[in-house]
Measured scan of single mutants.
Amino acid sequence: SPEEIKAKALDLLNKKLHRANKFGQDQADIDSLQRQINRVEKFGVDLNSKLAEELGLV
């Protein structure tokens, strides 16, 4: 269901964000992850996106 997909995506992105902060990645990478999280919260996951591929939806 779209809600489950959204939850999985947010979980994955939050893990990536945590790792980025923990290991001191570029601020641009961290900002990009934050924008992705905001986009998923607002609009859900686009099944044509790279994120959908990472989640194994495509």
Score class of each variant (00 low, 15 high):
57 L>C: 06
43 F>P: 02
34 Q>G: 04
6 K>C: 05
47 L>T: 06
57 L>M: 08
28 A>R: 10
55 L>I: 07
22 K>R: 11
7 A>V: 11
54 E>M: 10
14 N>R: 15
11 D>V: 04
38 N>D: 15
12 L>N: 05
56 G>A: 06
9 A>Q: 02
16 K>R: 13
35 R>L: 11
36 Q>G: 02
1 S>H: 10
9 A>L: 07
35 R>A: 14
17 L>W: 02
19 R>W: 15
32 S>I: 12
6 K>Y: 04
35 R>Y: 04
19 R>F: 14
33 L>P: 00
12 L>S: 05
48 N>T: 11
6 K>R: 12
40 V>D: 01
13 L>T: 00
24 G>K: 05
27 Q>V: 08
14 N>Y: 15
51 L>D: 03
43 F>N: 06
11 D>T: 03
42 K>Y: 06
12 L>V: 09
32 S>C: 15
50 K>M: 11
32 S>R: 14
28 A>H: 11
26 D>L: 09
53 E>Y: 13
29 D>S: 14
44 G>Y: 01
42 K>R: 12
4 E>V: 10
25 Q>N: 12
21 N>L: 15
7 A>E: 10
3 E>H: 08
38 N>K: 14
15 K>L: 08
50 K>V: 10
5 I>P: 02
51 L>E: 04
7 A>S: 10
52 A>P: 02
32 S>W: 14
35 R>F: 05
12 L>R: 05
31 D>H: 06
9 A>V: 07
26 D>N: 13
31 D>C: 07
24 G>R: 04
39 R>S: 14
11 D>E: 14
2 P>R: 11
37 I>A: 02
25 Q>V: 13
21 N>D: 11
14 N>L: 14
39 R>Q: 15
47 L>N: 05
47 L>P: 12
32 S>D: 14
10 L>P: 01
32 S>Y: 14
16 K>H: 05
58 V>K: 12
29 D>W: 15
56 G>Q: 08
4 E>S: 11
3 E>S: 10
29 D>T: 15
18 H>G: 10
7 A>F: 08
52 A>F: 09
41 E>G: 05
34 Q>L: 15
34 Q>S: 06
17 L>Q: 02
17 L>E: 01
14 N>V: 09
37 I>F: 00
55 L>T: 02
57 L>Q: 03
17 L>I: 06
23 F>G: 11
48 N>I: 05
5 I>L: 13
44 G>T: 00
11 D>G: 04
29 D>V: 15
20 A>D: 03
27 Q>N: 08
33 L>Q: 01
52 A>Q: 03
27 Q>F: 09
9 A>H: 02
18 H>C: 14
49 S>K: 01
35 R>E: 15
57 L>H: 04
46 D>I: 05
46 D>Y: 02
40 V>F: 01
35 R>N: 12
46 D>W: 02
56 G>E: 06
6 K>S: 04
36 Q>W: 06
50 K>R: 08
38 N>V: 14
13 L>D: 00
31 D>L: 06
50 K>L: 12
9 A>S: 01
31 D>R: 08
7 A>R: 13
40 V>K: 00
8 K>Y: 04
24 G>C: 10
37 I>L: 06
30 I>F: 04
32 S>E: 15
21 N>K: 15
31 D>E: 13
58 V>S: 12
57 L>K: 04
4 E>R: 08
19 R>S: 13
14 N>A: 09
37 I>V: 03
10 L>H: 01
40 V>N: 01
29 D>E: 15
38 N>S: 14
55 L>M: 09
47 L>C: 08
43 F>H: 12
7 A>W: 06
12 L>H: 11
1 S>E: 08
12 L>C: 09
46 D>V: 05
54 E>N: 04
23 F>M: 14
23 F>T: 14
8 K>G: 04
42 K>F: 06
1 S>Q: 09
21 N>H: 14
31 D>M: 04
12 L>T: 05
4 E>Q: 11
19 R>T: 12
34 Q>Y: 06
36 Q>C: 15
7 A>M: 11
23 F>P: 06
17 L>D: 01
49 S>W: 04
34 Q>N: 09
32 S>P: 01
18 H>D: 15
53 E>D: 07
1 S>A: 08
33 L>K: 01
16 K>W: 06
41 E>Y: 04
53 E>T: 09
54 E>L: 09
40 V>R: 00
32 S>Q: 12
37 I>C: 01
27 Q>E: 08
18 H>E: 15
15 K>F: 02
48 N>Y: 06
17 L>S: 01
22 K>F: 12
23 F>A: 13
13 L>A: 00
13 L>N: 00
5 I>T: 07
4 E>T: 11
57 L>P: 02
25 Q>F: 14
53 E>F: 14
20 A>L: 10
8 K>Q: 10
20 A>C: 05
15 K>D: 10
16 K>F: 04
41 E>I: 13
37 I>P: 00
10 L>I: 10
43 F>T: 04
7 A>D: 08
49 S>A: 03
47 L>I: 11
1 S>C: 13
54 E>W: 13
34 Q>P: 00
11 D>C: 13
16 K>T: 03
20 A>S: 04
39 R>V: 13
20 A>M: 13
52 A>C: 04
20 A>F: 08
48 N>W: 08
54 E>V: 06
30 I>V: 09
28 A>Y: 10
52 A>H: 03
3 E>V: 07
33 L>W: 02
42 K>I: 12
52 A>W: 10
39 R>N: 14
56 G>V: 04
35 R>K: 12
41 E>Q: 10
51 L>G: 01
12 L>F: 14
32 S>K: 13
34 Q>F: 04
35 R>D: 14
45 V>R: 00
1 S>P: 07
45 V>Q: 01
29 D>Y: 15
53 E>H: 11
30 I>A: 05
25 Q>C: 15
22 K>N: 10
8 K>D: 04
21 N>S: 12
31 D>K: 08
33 L>H: 01
36 Q>K: 07
27 Q>P: 11
53 E>G: 07
6 K>E: 02
44 G>P: 02
36 Q>P: 00
55 L>D: 01
23 F>D: 14
49 S>M: 03
10 L>S: 01
40 V>Y: 00
4 E>P: 04
53 E>C: 12
7 A>T: 12
58 V>D: 08
19 R>V: 13
